[in-house]
């Protein structure tokens, strides 16, 4: 296992074939490895964001105040998707604002400069920014529950060639999540370590967990991934990506990449399935059959 300090670089390394598995969001899974031609399977649905991603305004009370402002965010990230969904909810489009691409490590500093008045970012930055004077969260991912999903994905071919690989991933995952979510000294130590690793502390990390719908119980994850809502979400996500030209410059429509849902239904081109959702390993974990 390799820990990357750069999220995008970790996905690029996976897409280039240097690694067999990576953790990413459902949107990046579709737009980077899948659009890059790497057949990818979501082994585990870890959680979805329920408040961890937020639209923050300086001196503005409601989302409508965002009109005409420069919005600092990591372009083409889940923040961008959240902004699109937020604008959509009040009848605006991206034409009503100006998006300024900003690197995520600089978000907190950037918010303190006078020319930055609107920002979309994720935790732990959100927690720090809302503590600054004048900052108000006007929209967050809790308002679009289940749309920004964290996945553990692996190369479909590698999974097929090594049946134990998926089992091992699922086993390690649920063992770790079990410790992390437990109300024991061991669990507290794990949360403190995770907090420190993401640039905050135990309290900050616990606040993030509170804004996350964590599927600590694999049975819940199975329920989530097999519900029809996942298809609706992925349809929205691919529409957004296609609109931004992120499914490949020659993509004629959002259907160009096939997305397989649990049960075998395919969204888009069934001859070019590159992203697969399945409950195989989570079900094994739920049944204690790993």
């Amino acid at each position: 296992m390799t820990q990357f300090n750069d999220y995008v670089e970790s996905i690029n390394q996976y897409t280039a074939g240097a690694h067999d598995a990576v953790t990413l969001t459902n949107m990046d899974g579709l737009s980077i490895p899948a659009a890059g031609g790497v057949d990818t399977t979501a082994v585990i649905v870890g959680d979805f964001s329920a408040g961890n991603d937020a639209v923050i305004l300086k001196d503005g009370a409601t989302l409508a105040d965002i009109r005409g402002r420069n919005v600092n965010l990591v372009e083409y990230s889940v923040s961008h998707y959240l902004l699109a969904r937020a604008l959509d909810s009040v009848g605006m489009t991206e034409r009503d604002v100006t998006v300024v691409n900003t690197a995520d490590p600089d978000m907190v500093g950037a918010f303190q400069t006078p020319d930055v008045t609107a920002m979309v970012t994720w935790n732990p930055m959100v927690q720090e920014i809302v503590g600054l004077p004048g900052a108000t969260i006007v929209f967050d991912s809790a308002m679009i529950p289940g749309e920004i999903i964290d996945l553990m994905v692996a190369n479909t071919q590698v999974l097929a060639d090594n049946p134990d690989f998926g089992r091992a991933l699922a086993g390690i995952w649920y063992e770790t999540v079990g410790i992390m979510a437990s109300d024991t000294p061991g669990g507290a130590a794990a949360r403190a370590a995770m907090g420190a690793a993401s640039g905050t502390d135990q309290a900050g990390f616990e606040a993030q967990l509170a804004a996350t719908k964590l599927f600590a119980d694999p049975a819940e994850a199975v329920g989530f991934v097999t519900s029809p809502d996942l298809g609706t979400t992925m349809d929205r996500v691919r529409g957004f990506l296609f609109d931004k030209g992120l499914l490949g410059s020659g993509a004629p429509s959002a259907d160009v990449i096939g997305i397989e849902l649990p049960g075998g239904a395919v969204l888009g081109d069934a001859g070019n399935v590159k992203l697969r959702f399945t409950d195989t390993w989570m079900k094994l974990a739920a049944d204690g059959a790993l």
């Binding site: 995008v8 690029n12 280039a16 737009s31 890059g36 083409y76 998006v99 691409n101 690197a103 600089d106």
Partner: peptide, 23 residues
């Protein structure tokens, strides 16, 4: 430009880096 911009040669290169768009 890689860190914060809405246009520029460096901005574009780093933006499409997300998608391995070597082309």
């Amino acid at each position: 430009e890689a860190i914060s911009a809405d246009s520029g040669l460096g901005y574009r290169s780093f933006l499409v880096r997300r998608y391995l768009s070597m082309d």
